[in-house]
Design a protein around this nucleic acid. Sequence first.
DNA 1: GTTCCGCATGAATCGATAG
DNA 2: ACTATCGATTCATGCGGAA
Lengths: 292, 292
Amino acid sequence: MDFVDKIIHGDCEDVLKNWPDNSIDLIFTSPPYADQRKKTYGGIRPDEYVDWFLPKAEQFLRVLKPTGTFVLNVKERVVNGERHTYVIDLILKMREQGWLWTEEFMWHKKNSYPGKWPNRFRDSWERLLQFNKRKKFNMYQEEVMVPVGDWAKTRLNNLSETDKSRDESKVDSGFGKNVSNWVGRDKVYPTNVIHMATECANRNHSAAFPESLPEWFIRLFTQPNDIILDPFVGSGTTAVAAKQLGRNYVGIDIDESYYEIAQQRVLQIQPRLLDEPATYKVETKNETAILG
Amino acid sequence: MDFVDKIIHGDCEDVLKNWPDNSIDLIFTSPPYADQRKKTYGGIRPDEYVDWFLPKAEQFLRVLKPTGTFVLNVKERVVNGERHTYVIDLILKMREQGWLWTEEFMWHKKNSYPGKWPNRFRDSWERLLQFNKRKKFNMYQEEVMVPVGDWAKTRLNNLSETDKSRDESKVDSGFGKNVSNWVGRDKVYPTNVIHMATECANRNHSAAFPESLPEWFIRLFTQPNDIILDPFVGSGTTAVAAKQLGRNYVGIDIDESYYEIAQQRVLQIQPRLLDEPATYKVETKNETAILG
DNA sequence: GTTCCGCATGAATCGATAG
DNA sequence: ACTATCGATTCATGCGGAA
């Protein structure tokens, strides 16, 4: 396991070729988006996107454990007034490679990029495609449970943790009957729609997604000490989230300046104590839900 | 125009074959999903779904005006632990027919069907695929603007916590019962994510989607007296919304009992007066509202 | 007139059982 | 082995009646 807990500079396709089979528990990544302009980072043309991605997906398939999961954050661009089809083409081709297209989560970006066009609204959601090697894979649903319903969320948010337990004890002693409705029903499983704001204030290198996004999937699909790979790690958000949660990370990026930023960021991170209550928050639509 | 303002009993493919080209402004429909509604539609199998739908889409393409829009509400089901590919296959095939895949709206169903499974969460979103014949099409963005700011807090102060959070969810999608309260508030353009709950507990008629869903797209893509077609009209929700908004409707359904329900419902509808405060009308006191 | 509370009701999916 | 049916699971919502 000498390849874990590193940020690696290089093309993930080349780097991964030297890796052992079935060694990764979760691949979470947001590859560079297709773009007409050649000079931008990545700069893969929409029409060439599938061919560019497939050999990499082949390596992802090989290094992923049979019980592991691949989560791909992607969204098709508008080309010539149409949504380009490279994402759905990619799904079909990856299934031919042997991937199972298990699920498609929806990331609702609360504060999407502003703008106005005569024939379309702001694009406010992205796909989180879940792929697996087998029908049976590891999933720890309890780790991402959320407080019950909106009505309870608004109420619970105003209570501190101590207040919450105090109220519950009141139930036992015959007081606070309002809270009695929540007893035994305080948390529910989430859905496949994830509400999170984009990271707005990011300096030079804009992070594609907020830290809470990989965090959510890391909690859902891995346990402590599992290995998480982000082959397009960019500024290192996935690696940071993994390390904070006591997982092992591997980040790869072909861009040298990203590589350096990611390395710096990840070195400054201290894993949270495992029995420490999770402090991170997930934005549900109107409220902030406390996870963990 | 002797075919408008009717609910028609029959197979939309056959019915539409006798219709003139380029005569419809908006097609909004939610066809039976694969393996759903077996009793009434026979339950189209996932593998046969594309072949079943394509000849109908051919007719839709023919009868739609060049400036018109086709909005298709659909969602793929899980088959053998995977998301089936019939929806994305359909998109690709429809493009070969000549359709432009202009946009994909997201309908976030807040009250999705409950359930728990070891490998998946509740499915809480559906696709609203937008297709067009031409890059230039009619779109009236101002009609679906949503209020912005803290008005909700003041307005909702008197409500219970329960009702408050419930109503806030409607604010997000831009719909609610007391939309007349929006008068005097600033508005912004919405995004391509639509938050609406299904109307499952509606005793009189249970529809696949809430009336506000077709209403939103009818306002966005048509003007009064335009013609709106729903070739799978079901219990008539699209036709009801169209009539209420002063548009002409055509509803087709192959199921006789649905046909009768739709006809009954639509006859009871009175179009709203056009100068009645529209749900989206803006009257600020000092300044002109943001109307594009 | 309000606010609160109980209850029926879904475009679902999995796993087991039966033919 | 492959298909058809059935039970268990689960929760946001609107409605109606009570406080």
